[in-house]
Simulated assay, not measured.
Amino acid sequence: MTRLKVYIARHLQVFFSTLGELVRAPFSNMMTIAVIGIALALPTGLHVLLQNVQQVSAQWDGAAQISLFLHQQTTDKQVEQLAGLIRKRQDVSTVTSITREAALEEFRQNSGFGEALDALEDNPFPPVIVVYPTSEADNIESVQAMLKMLGERPEVEHAQLDMQWLKRLYTIMDIGRRGIWVLATLLSISVLLVVGNTIRLAIESRREEIEIIKLIGGTNAFIRRPFLYTGFWYGLTGGVISWLLITTSLWLLGGPVNRLATLYDSHYALAGLDLAASLGLLGASILLGLGGSWLAVTRHLHAIEPQ
């Protein structure tokens, strides 16, 4: 028990002494911490923005609809019969049928070509059935399956998913997600290098002290301990800086985004880092700080031997 208390006391001593060393040289240490914070804020901030885009697109899913353009010779009775069959599907919420005359009249009112349409001998518009999926089936995979099944019916000449652009958006977001992982990997390596180089300089500045400690019997673990705690503090404070940068950026963007949503008669607030994401960011930054310091100490400490 006594050895355990001594072990804990030594760690606590080094824990607070390394923090004191950072505080005593705030300018030089703050530059290293700022580099770590910015490097971590870039991929994390992009990840948060991507999540916000996914939330917005999830709300747009509800606007997905399938338009079935029927053959010209399809009668109004046949249109209603087909609409009735589609209404019986459990994955369909609403079905709207538009006759050829209704489609022509709607185009006449909205296009401004009323007089030109009067010159037409035949109605060029086909009957249309608009299908809205239920909320349970309102996703890309289910809607695509419904589109294929309804498009194979003999009455249907062409089936169109009016939210086809949403699938393209999801593909772009998937590319962005992978790009963020690549960027996060590269910047994580840069954080390791920055911390490692900073610890290497600290080791070189204390080279004579390390040689003396080894002469009097100090172990590598004893010498390594303060440098690892220094890396811990670099990682922790860098993670805090990163969190502050992301939170401040989202706060600055929140007002314009809210005003833009108001112009579309909607309300949307940017979602920031929740507790789990914040702890994950701090944990990742601490691990990078410890990893960079461990690599530097492992590589350079064994090279220092008393003459």
Rank of each mutant, 00 (worst) to 15 (best):
T237C: 12
L281S: 01
V156A: 05
L183K: 04
I180K: 10
K214S: 11
E155D: 08
V191I: 15
N220L: 05
E208Y: 10
L282P: 01
V156S: 05
M173V: 09
V191G: 05
T248A: 15
D162Y: 03
L187D: 00
L187W: 01
P226D: 01
I223A: 08
S190I: 13
G255M: 11
L186G: 08
R225G: 06
I175Q: 11
L279M: 12
L273C: 10
S249A: 15
D174N: 14
S190N: 11
S266A: 15
I213Q: 06
I203R: 05
R207H: 12
E152Q: 13
I213A: 11
Q160I: 11
I216R: 06
S188M: 07
L253K: 07
G217N: 08
W165T: 09
L270N: 10
S190R: 04
G196Q: 03
G235F: 00
G176L: 15
G255T: 14
A184Y: 01
Y264Q: 05
S266R: 12
F227W: 00
E155M: 10
Q164R: 13
I189N: 05
G235C: 05
G280W: 00
S190C: 12
W165Q: 09
L201A: 12
S205K: 10
L187V: 04
L260Y: 07
T171E: 13
L150E: 02
E155K: 07
M163S: 08
I189K: 07
Y264W: 05
T230C: 02
F227C: 01
A284I: 09
R153Y: 06
M163L: 15
W233S: 00
W181T: 11
D162A: 12
G255P: 03
W181P: 01
A221R: 12
G235T: 04
S188F: 02
M149E: 14
D265Y: 01
M149A: 14
D174W: 09
R224A: 15
